[in-house]
Nucleic acid binder design. Structure first.
Length: 193
DNA sequence: CATGGGATTGACT
DNA sequence: GTCAATCCCATGC
């Protein structure tokens, strides 16, 4: 029996950096989280800012649920729901360092992934590499198709960089993008530091 | 019911 | 650097 990672019990701006180093596993493929962003219902960049709707419903669930939504009509973006039931908050998983199943990831990513640094170095890329889609929305982070696990040996006490979030137009002043310092699997643009 | 805007990526100038 | 692809869903008439 695995337990819900303690990081998911933290406020979202602490949960996001705390999830760095944790693993995400789908079937035979796995990666280590190297980049995250925090989103909270009290700031307008968060989908939950508009309140409970059919789209945002999952964001208000208890910690331990995945929120997966379609971005730009093309990509599935993966978020871990955090904070107490009734509060809309989630951590966007933006990049992974591939750990297992790299051949399957390369096959799904195709020729556009010229190197292993292109496999999971972005929120849309990692969903394609791991092979999940919107059907995973609302599933459990422990018992569902996408499983969140603790950091492997050597992935604790990481040096974390914080900076402004990517690709949003509102609340850009919040330093809620977090990444493992110096890790080459982080998405572009690289955070300063 | 029609419209418009993305928590992105990859191809192209 | 610019830009299109593509679809879910919130909003407004």
């Amino acid at each position: 029996m695995s337990e819900l990672p303690a990081a998911l019990r933290l406020p979202v701006d602490e949960a996001a950096p705390a999830l760095l180093g944790h693993t995400v596993t789908v079937g035979d493929c796995a990666g280590v989280i190297v980049e995250t962003e925090a989103y909270h219902e009290t700031e307008p960049a968060c989908h939950a800012y508009v309140g409970r709707t059919s789209r945002t419903e999952v964001l208000f669930h208890a910690p331990g649920t995945w929120y997966v939504y379609r971005s730009y009509g093309i990509h599935a973006l993966l978020n871990a729901v955090v904070e107490e039931e009734g509060v809309g908050a989630a951590v966007l998983i933006r990049a992974l360092e591939p750990l297992r199943g790299l051949d399957a990831m390369r096959a799904r990513r195709g020729v556009t992934a010229r190197s292993d640094f292109d496999l999971c170095s972005g929120p849309g890329k990692l969903s394609q590499a791991l092979g999940f889609d919107l059907e995973a929305n609302g599933t459990d982070v422990l018992g569902g198709p996408i499983r969140l696990g603790p950091p492997p040996p050597g992935w604790t006490s990481l040096d974390v960089l914080a900076g402004p979030r990517i690709g949003i137009t509102k609340a850009t002043e919040l330093p809620w993008r977090f990444s493992v310092a110096g890790n080459r699997h982080v998405s572009r643009p690289r955070p300063a530091g």
